Simulated assay, not measured.
Amino acid sequence: MTKDPYAALGLTKTATAENIKKAYRKIARANHPDLHPGDLAAEARFKEAGSAYDLLKDPEQRRRFDAGEIDAKGAEQAPRGYYRDEARRPENPYTQSGPRPGGDPFGEGFNADEFFANFARNRSADQSGFGRGTPNDWPGQDTKYRLAVSFLDAALGAKTRITLPDGNALEVTIPEGARDGQTLRLRGKGAPGRGAGRPGDAYITIDVAPSPDFEREGDDIAVVLPISIDEAILGGKVPVNTINGAVNVTIPVGASSGQVLRLKGRGVKGRSGKGDQRVTLRVVLPAKIDDELKRFIEGWRANHAYNPRSGKETP
Rank of each mutant, 00 (worst) to 15 (best):
D180R: 01
F116E: 09
N136F: 09
P165Q: 01
D126V: 10
A78D: 13
E91S: 14
R88D: 05
I162P: 01
Q141M: 10
D180Y: 00
V149M: 04
T160W: 00
Q96C: 03
T163R: 14
R146N: 09
A155S: 15
A155C: 13
K144Q: 11
E114F: 14
G167E: 08
I162G: 05
A120F: 12
R161G: 05
K144W: 08
A117C: 05
G74Q: 02
P99F: 08
S128Y: 03
R84S: 10
R123S: 12
F106I: 07
G74Y: 06
N122D: 12
P101T: 03
E76T: 11
D153C: 07
N111I: 00
K144E: 06
F130N: 01
D137Y: 12
G103I: 12
D85W: 09
F115N: 03
D153F: 02
N92D: 15
S150E: 01
P93V: 08
D85R: 15
A148F: 04
I162T: 07
T160M: 09
G131L: 03
F119S: 07
G81A: 09
E76W: 06
V149D: 00
G74K: 04
A120K: 13
Y83G: 01
K159D: 15
Y94L: 11
L152D: 13
D137I: 10
D180A: 06
P99S: 13
I174S: 02
Q127K: 11
E114Y: 14
I162E: 04
A158F: 06
F115L: 04
R132D: 08
Y94M: 10
P175F: 03
N118D: 14
R121V: 00
D180W: 04
N168S: 15
G157E: 09
R161S: 14
P105T: 14
A72H: 09
N92Y: 11
Q77D: 02
N92L: 07
Q96K: 12
A158W: 06
P139F: 04
A158N: 15
T173I: 10
R121I: 01
A112C: 10
I174E: 01
Y82R: 11
Q141D: 11
P175Q: 00
F115D: 03
T160N: 08
S124F: 01
T95P: 03
S97Y: 11
N136H: 08
P135T: 13
F115A: 09
A178P: 03
L156S: 11
D104R: 11
K73E: 14
F130D: 06
G74W: 02
